[in-house]
Structures are given as structure tokens and as C-alpha cells.
């Protein structure tokens, strides 16, 4: 009898404490940190036959960290990203397991758009191509980077051609051809992202692409309106609000990265957020 009473008391007390504890923990400010990764040389020797696991562990660590960042940004909570640390961790992983596709995927997704480290990413992709000789994604990324970010259309065409040959997909060859003629990079970007989105299954990855498509579409939408405005008035609008007041657009779209869109003197639509276009006005830390 006594035992039963004691059990009930303890159980009740446990529930009474657990619920408020978990509630209060939820409101605790969480530190978003990537943490330190030992160098590849050290890891290579101490992980013995668990190199692949160590590589994947590092990748997953970065993926989770980045996922948290995306969530914060979506809710307009400004958090500084440890881009250099992320890049370093990814490179460590690549040295441990050069075959791991997640590394190249993530590098492509995270370090080109926001950070503008296109050359470094391309070098990493080149490194991966030495191992993943069958994979058309790596030349596809490299080609896109050359065209979209670096405006080196010749290199872009070369890599896209290689991707087309490896994949046997004709539209890649068409894309390669279009690089010679077209310069509307925003549209190219959206096309690229839509291709990626179609093949993505991972929820975080899809969210990443959707977010970026949303941002690019907003810019394209605004850019089209600005272009129309210039055609009609002969000069760019003073600010984007005037596009609404003069009826070119219904309302200003929101920057999903939490910034504000604006138009510069030359009539180019830009944003104050992390979404750096064309790899030029990026605000990377290092």
C-alpha cells in the first residue's frame, strides 16, 4: 500500500516537473554553433577504418547547422553564419571521403549564392570530378557556376557539354548553347534551381531551393516591372514603392531571406539581405 502511494506521488511529481521544464527549455535562447572540426590529417589517422563515417558526420553536422540557419532567416531572426568554418568542415569531409556527393551538393548550394566563393567551390567540384568520374552533377554545377556567377560562358559551355555527355540529357546541351546568347542571368538561375528542385527529395534541400526560387522570382518580377517603367518613363523609378503607386505592380514582394528590396541608380533590383546576386555584392566574412 505504501509503495503504491509512493509510486503515485513520485509519478505525479515527475509529470508536474517535466512539463514546465520542457516548456521552459523551449524558450531558452539556443546557441547556434557549428563547433570545431579537427583537421583532415588528424582525423585520417585517428578514425582508422571509420573515415567514411567521419566524413559523413562532418557533412551532417554542417547540414543540421545550415538547416537551423535557414529556419532562423525565414523567421527574420538575424544570425551570423560561420561560412568559413562550414567551408573548412566540408573540405575536411572531402579529404576523408572524396566520393561523398553530399559534400559537393552542399558546397554548391551554400557557398555560391550567399557567399560568392564560386572559385573555391569550382575547385572543390574539380577535385570531386577526379573521383566521381561517372557523375554528371559535378560538371553541371561547375558549368552553371562559370556561366551564372563568373560570366565565363566558354568554360560554362565546356562543362555543361560534359554533363550532357555523362547524363545523356539533351536539355543540358541546350542550356550550354543558350549561355552563348542569353545574358538574363536571373532567369537562368531560376531555371537551374527548378532543375535542382525537381530532383531533390530531402526536405531541407527542397526548402533551400524553394526559398531561393522565391527570392529570385521576386527579383525577376520587380526587375521586369522596373524595365517596363524605364521603357515608359525613360528613367528608373526613385524607389520600388513608386512601382506600386504607379500601378506597375500590385504590392512589394517579401524577401524570404529577411532583407528589403531596392533599386539602384542603374535600375538594377537588389536586396539588403544575405541573398547576394551574381556573386558580386556578397558580404562574406573572410
Amino acid at each position: 500500500m505504501n509503495r503504491l502511494v509512493l509510486t503515485i506521488i513520485l509519478l505525479t511529481a515527475y509529470i508536474a516537473v517535466t512539463l514546465p521544464l520542457s516548456a521552459s527549455l523551449k524558450s531558452r535562447p539556443d546557441l547556434v554553433k557549428l563547433g570545431y572540426t579537427p583537421s583532415a590529417e588528424v582525423l585520417k589517422y585517428i578514425t582508422a577504418d571509420q573515415k567514411l563515417l567521419a566524413a559523413q558526420w562532418n557533412v551532417l553536422k554542417v547540414l543540421f547547422y545550415y538547416g537551423t540557419l535557414l529556419d532562423k532567416w525565414r523567421h527574420n531572426i538575424p544570425v551570423a553564419a560561420e561560412y568559413y568554418n562550414m567551408y573548412r568542415t566540408i573540405c575536411v569531409a572531402a579529404k576523408l571521403d572524396p566520393y561523398n556527393i553530399d559534400i559537393y551538393y552542399f558546397a554548391q548550394a551554400a557557398f555560391t549564392w550567399e557567399v560568392g566563393r564560386v572559385k573555391e567551390v569550382n575547385a572543390l567540384l574539380e577535385y570531386g570530378m577526379k573521383y566521381r568520374t561517372w557523375d554528371w552533377y559535378l560538371p553541371f554545377f561547375t558549368g552553371f557556376n562559370y556561366g551564372y556567377f563568373l560570366h565565363d560562358y566558354k568554360q560554362a559551355a565546356k562543362y555543361l557539354q560534359r554533363a550532357a555527355e555523362l547524363s545523356g540529357q539533351q536539355y543540358l546541351a541546350t542550356l550550354a548553347a543558350r549561355y552563348y546568347y542569353q545574358s538574363d542571368a536571373t532567369e537562368m538561375g531560376i531555371a537551374f534551381l527548378k532543375t535542382m528542385l525537381k530532383q531533390a527529395s530531402d526536405a531541407r534541400e527542397r526548402r533551400m531551393y524553394q526559398l531561393r526560387i522565391q527570392a529570385l522570382s521576386a527579383i525577376k518580377y520587380l526587375q521586369d516591372a522596373v524595365r517596363k517603367y524605364i521603357r515608359d518613363n525613360g528613367h528608373p523609378p526613385r524607389d520600388l514603392k513608386s512601382l506600386v503607386s504607379s500601378g506597375y505592380i500590385e504590392k512589394l514582394p517579401r524577401d524570404p531571406y529577411g532583407g528589403h528590396f531596392y533599386v539602384d541608380k542603374n535600375g538594377k533590383v537588389k536586396t539588403t539581405s544575405k541573398l547576394a546576386l551574381h556573386g558580386k555584392n556578397s558580404d562574406n566574412p573572410k
Binding site: 571509420q50 563515417l53 547540414l63 553530399d102 531533390a200
Partner: peptide, 19 residues
């Protein structure tokens, strides 16, 4: 949890656990 190599990761994890 892997983005693009669920199967490869499964093989890696399996061999890692075995190891």
C-alpha cells in the same frame, strides 16, 4: 539525414557499425 546519398550512407553506416 543525407541529402543525396541515402543508399551510400546506409552502406557506409552498415559497414561502420559492423567494423
Amino acid at each position: 539525414f543525407s541529402m543525396r546519398q541515402v543508399q551510400e550512407l546506409a552502406i557506409t553506416l552498415f559497414l561502420s557499425s559492423l567494423s
